[in-house]
Design a protein around this nucleic acid. Structure first.
Length: 701
DNA sequence: TTAGGGTTAG
């Protein structure tokens, strides 16, 4: 495979260093939030000498009460205070404490916390700093809010007075377990803060997506304290989150200025930031500048190319990474599986699957979820189910991947059953789960069940249906011929109907050949998406199906006037590790004659099973060339080529850059029946699966 | 001194 790698030298080190105007450029972050900007820059050193005082000032300005140290909770009442003072001497607990430390050291956090229960229940033990440190590690390892509350409350009731190190560890414990409100209180009330304290709270804010607050604290820190490479790396991540490349560039220049431009963490954050901000060239530059290319560096640049849709380049980088001898990790495999699902064949993915297991990441939740998605997308639902069943732990995303697989495979009832099993296993569904299950109902025409599930969304699961859920239901109503109800659903939606919803109604109108409603929906769509070709094409089809050829020709003229043209559509098939690409009506392939003869004989064969070839003329002004294009669509040519050049009975996989048309859909369904082949036709957003004459098709949103 | 940072799946 010939792969060209995009690599531009658009920035240089000198340019970066000389463009330093930090931190004034950070104002840009707050441009959309002037409130922050106001109070960020109003203060000066003279007014509030200590950043901690400044934070108090912020709180006061916002009408908040200054925070007072929380009274230490005590299990004792005033009446037994005397008794407590008398029994103040703490019991030694060397055995339990050292056991807790050992368990935490071996990552056996759950057991460490089970042992901690003895300390909690009996009380009065002399617990040392190293044990508290181990308990903090256990809480972070488990990410359990309940554990954090238990440990923290024990620290307070046991009169633990943390030093700077332990204060930071306790802060980190809250941050890592997502308890940002408590973490912020702890940070504000810290008697002393050092670089680690600042980095911890700022990184926590960035983790939860509170970028503005992160920048606000960063500016305070910038003014009063030194910030290291870790801080810069975190703020580069915040710039990526805000998609503000100019701010990211300034942080890049700050890093170079302070001599941390080649720091591993800064470099990786830069690669990620540049690619997320839309400049893959700069990301590549940052990667090239890395003195030592680490696993994360490679992962970041591969993720960058994948994000921009440069799947081949991403794969090429993966080969380079593998050849360079750098260790691949579960991030690498997760990404490669995802890239494979867009680009490569099932065989290739199986190799990646084997590599995943060989490298010891066979149980990784993310990589396995990517595999479930991959096999689902390629119509290998049994394989997807196999991977899913062997996963030691699953999350909502894993369940969603398989429900989508079932739905698109045409197994609507099974998708609904899986959804119900998910609920029984107390896994919380999210809006994607509902999209998957409603879509499954739509494809399998399970109207009653779909309607019930749609209603249960807000009633039982407190998830507000979004436009795509409405679009699914409109499609479902359309299939039942309930166009009035579908229209009523659009009008009754609690938000302004989106293009997707009108498009669903337009499709429903086409299916039911309702010209009036179709025109209405199309007009709405023209207003919203005047340049979208497919909207015109659907209306054109409605006119055509209603026998209104003159109006259909009028739509075609509008298309021409607007300069909207069909992009060249093509289909390709991989045979013997070589891709063969076909355009509609294409006569450039060396086996052209054989392929066209095969198409003709297949059409003849399937016409015995009820296939009616598309009418010879769609519109009055279709010329001979266009006619050939209409009769020999690229997917038919690819299927014919596949049947000629592959073993009898082996499955065929066709990939294409467009949606399959109804004619090819019907034709290939029957071809699968008469040739007893399994045929998967797929494009980037949907696939059509044919086996023994049955078919399923679907969308991925 | 310890502690804090970068990349992945539906």
């Amino acid at each position: 495979m010939e792969i060209s790698l995009v690599c531009y030298q658009s920035i240089s080190l000198d340019k970066i260093q000389n463009s330093f105007r930090f931190p004034s450029s950070i104002h840009e972050v707050f441009r959309t939030k002037p409130l922050f900007s106001d109070y960020c820059f109003r203060f000066n050193r003279r007014k509030c000498g200590n950043p901690c005082d400044k934070i108090k000032c912020f709180s006061l300005e916002q009408g908040l009460q200054p925070r007072r140290p929380k009274p230490k909770p005590s299990r004792n009442t005033d009446s037994d205070l005397k008794e407590t003072e008398e029994t103040h001497v703490k019991r030694p607990s060397v055995g339990i404490c050292s056991q807790i430390e050992k368990l935490a050291f071996c990552n056996r956090y759950r057991e460490a916390l089970e042992l901690f229960e003895i300390l909690e229940l009996e009380g009065g033990f002399d617990v040392g700093l190293s044990t508290y440190d181990a308990l903090v590690s256990a809480c972070i390892g488990l990410g359990s809010v309940r554990a954090v509350k238990r440990v923290f409350s024990y620290m307070i009731s046991n009169g633990f007075e943390p030093d700077q190190y332990m204060s930071n560890r306790v802060l980190l414990m809250h941050v890592k377990c997502g308890m940002m409100v408590d973490a912020r209180s702890l940070f504000d009330e810290m008697p002393e803060r050092n670089l680690v304290s600042w980095n911890t709270i700022i990184a926590g804010l960035v983790d939860v997506g509170d970028y503005f607050e992160a920048f606000r604290l960063f500016l305070l820190m910038w003014e009063f304290s030194d910030c290291g490479s870790r801080t810069i790396a975190t703020m580069i991540r915040a710039s990526a989150g805000l998609e503000l490349i100019s701010v990211g560039r300034q942080l890049h220049s700050a890093a170079v200025k302070f001599g941390v431009g080649e720091d591993i963490f800064v470099s990786c954050a830069l690669i990620d930031m540049y690619s997320k901000c839309g400049s893959i060239e700069d990301a590549q530059w940052a990667f090239d500048e890395m003195p030592e290319k680490t696993t994360v560096g490679w992962n970041s640049i591969i993720a960058g190319y994948a994000l921009h849709g440069y799947s081949e380049e991403a794969l090429s980088m993966f080969y380079e990474m593998r050849d360079s001898g750098v260790k691949m990790d579960h991030f690498t495999f997760s990404m490669i599986i995802r890239i494979s699902s867009r680009l490569a064949s099932v065989e290739y993915a199986k190799q990646v699957h084997a590599g995943l297991i060989r490298h010891g990441f066979g149980l990784d939740i993310v990589a396995n979820t990517a595999l479930v998605d991959f096999y689902s997308k390629w119509g290998r639902v049994e394989d997807a189910k196999h991977v899913f069943d062997r996963m030691p732990c699953k999350n909502t995303i894993s369940w969603n991947a398989l429900i989508v697989g079932y739905g698109n495979h045409g197994w609507g009832a099974e998708a609904v059953e899986l959804f119900e099993q998910m609920l029984r296993e107390k896994m919380r569904p999210n809006h994607v789960t509902f999209l998957a299950v409603l879509s499954a109902c739509s494809h399998s025409r399970l109207f009653e069940r779909g309607w019930e599930i749609f209603q249960s969304m807000s009633r039982d699961h407190k998830i507000k249906p979004r436009a795509m859920h409405y679009a699914c239901l409109i499609e479902l109503l359309g299939q039942e011929g309930l166009l009035d109800e579908a229209f009523a659903l659009i009008r009754g939606a609690p938000f302004k109907p989106t293009a997707n919803m009108w498009a669903a109604l337009l499709t429903a109108s086409r299916v039911n050949v309702n010209l009036e409603l179709g025109k209405y929906a199309a007009e709405k769509l023209y207003g919203m998406e005047p340049e979208k070709l497919s909207n015109y094409v659907v209306l054109l089809n409605i006119y055509h199906q209603s026998g209104k050829l003159k109006e259909a020709a009028g739509v075609l003229q509008t298309l021409r006037r607007k300069g909207l043209r069909m992009l060249p559509v093509c289909s390709w098939i991989e045979v013997n590790k070589q891709s063969h690409v076909f355009l509609s009506g294409d006569k450039s392939h060396v086996q052209t004659n054989e392929i066209y003869e095969k198409v003709d004989s297949l059409v003849h064969e399937i016409s015995k099973h009820g296939y009616v070839p598309k009418e010879k003329t769609l519109l009055p002004d279709v010329d001979e060339q266009e006619q050939r294009i209409l009769l020999y669509h690229s997917e038919k040519l690819a299927v014919a080529f596949g049947l000629i050049n592959t073993m009898k009975g082996s499955p065929l996989q066709i990939v294409q850059n467009h949606r399959i048309c109804n004619d090819c859909h019907n034709a290939i369904k029957l071809i699968a029946l008469v040739t007893r082949r399994e045929i998967v036709v797929r494009d980037a957003s949907r696939f059509h699966y044919f086996k023994d004459g049955s078919c399923s098709c679907g969308d991925y949103w």
